[in-house]
Design a binder for these strands. Sequence first.
DNA 1: CAAATTTCTGGGCTATTGCTCAATTGATGA
DNA 2: TCATCAATTGAGCAATAGCCCAGAAATTTG
Lengths: 328, 328
Amino acid sequence: MAEFGPKQRVGGMAAPESEKSRLDEAARAGWLYFIAGHTQDEIAKLLQVSRASAQRLVSLCLAEQLITFRLEHPIAACMELASRLKDLFHLAYCEVVPTDPAQPLTAAGIAERAANILESTLRGDKPTIVALGTGRAVRAAVERVSPIDCPNHQIVSLVGNISTDGSASFFDTVGRLADRTRARHYPMPLPFLMSSKNERDQMLRIDPIAKVRAVAAKADLRLVGIGQMDQSAQVHVDGFVSREELFEMMRLGAVGEVVGWAFDAEGRVIAGGINDRLTSIPLQVPAEALTIGAAVGRAKVAAIRAALKGRLINGLITDEATAGAVLG
Amino acid sequence: MAEFGPKQRVGGMAAPESEKSRLDEAARAGWLYFIAGHTQDEIAKLLQVSRASAQRLVSLCLAEQLITFRLEHPIAACMELASRLKDLFHLAYCEVVPTDPAQPLTAAGIAERAANILESTLRGDKPTIVALGTGRAVRAAVERVSPIDCPNHQIVSLVGNISTDGSASFFDTVGRLADRTRARHYPMPLPFLMSSKNERDQMLRIDPIAKVRAVAAKADLRLVGIGQMDQSAQVHVDGFVSREELFEMMRLGAVGEVVGWAFDAEGRVIAGGINDRLTSIPLQVPAEALTIGAAVGRAKVAAIRAALKGRLINGLITDEATAGAVLG
DNA sequence: CAAATTTCTGGGCTATTGCTCAATTGATGA
DNA sequence: TCATCAATTGAGCAATAGCCCAGAAATTTG
């Protein structure tokens, strides 16, 4: 677009000036609209232009960032973090709740949110399959779901809930949720880990198990916890994984786990180690059904970041402090 | 409204909590609306409430000042000042233009605005009587009115425009404006001051003069300058008022003048002095027809403030620096 | 524990806003 | 000077927001 000097100069002189007075008017209009609270009609009369032009000026004021909004509330930071996480990791869902300064590790806030999602999903008319994973937050969420009658939905476990000692009760989140909702439910009557890959593979071929797995694979909503793989890993603390097994996974690069599947810092599910003997439903990579991870705490930051990177989850519920750490 | 302790306590426990979560939601809604740019419908879905409730939350966010608007533009300060002046002095009209840092005393900005008002008034269909006073700003405004054909309107002078030496041209703003608009016009063929009260009163009884005065008294819009009454008073500089007369008025408390009528710091028109010999159209106190004063400059602050206090004008055009000084 | 009162919710209506399109205006170049 | 082009304008319409009212839920009172 080569142009003559004079032309450019004229443009250069004229445009900024008209531009400037236009921005002045836009600022005026914006002030009258947002601060004085006038309607665009009134502004049009005050500025002696048509209403359409007044609307354009208000738009311009916004587009040129002449006016900015400032939200004086703790929630604002949470919304901001959620928005950034959503953009950065292409999440379908993201919620950041304020961190309780008194108990920074409490799952109460995120459990509340997760319970909210569960409830609204279960209240829907459309028959839905809800799959539940491991994690304190998931258990707490289930406890907070208020009893509703929704027999059209199905609830299925993503993870074997027979502990090494055979007790199932504490980890039977599926059962707890089904109690409250009277939905059809499919617990996973399997140990978390089998003793060998072969044994695992055999187990999974058993018909009732295969059926549960088929239901789980079709789940519309997966709600899972995200565990870190360090010495205080929940899977170890709860006795599902021995110290040696844990160390082995850490050697293989594991930083976190979702329903038992250990993954490295890039979010790649690790081949080998206990993953070979795990009975949990496989992860979709990248996640297709809405798969919401719920986790808080400094210790889980690396695990959360990896799970997001690897697209093991496409939804996240966390708190402000954790979200900030994941991003920062 | 004496109430039982327990009641209050219960209320005291419940209200703040629900209040808090309600404000949280309001903040969320406000964020989504103003910052993320969602519609209220979308917000309703996101927050799992009806659209009506979403609207309430957004309103609440505004009402509770959770969100504030900030206009990053020099105009913002002007709008703010204008708004405060308007409220404080019950003005029907107020405009504050940015101060040109290069020429803080230039009347260009306010003349532009005043010209704007004149033009839009004269462009109107309704037959209107426009009365013009003294002052640089008024003259400059007239010069900036673009030629339009509006024979339905009338233009009248508020002040005698025969100078002591008999020349009228420079101060004949009425004639200049009439040239550009072809409106009927009524100059005031009188000296600014007569030599005595008696002579003035006789003069005003002359039929053609009385007729002009009758038209002027019915003016729909009065555009006047505001002069300070100090040693550099325009009425003195222009030779209408002698040094002695000026000092006399200052002794009587004069701080300013509008179309020659000197008034004190409270905006009361002074009885006696040159006011007795003035041929100008009397001021309406308080102003009823739209009476717009146009003035800028540090020196005029006291005069402007007084004119506003005394309701000698109900409209004001000034610049940012002057407006700030008037308020401060 | 039931009745009364207050507060809150969502439907539906109206005002306001955002946007598209045709027409006009003003600028540019032959 | 006139034709051409881009920018801007205002009318009209569809989407959005604001608000009132009846009904529901929660809370308080007797």
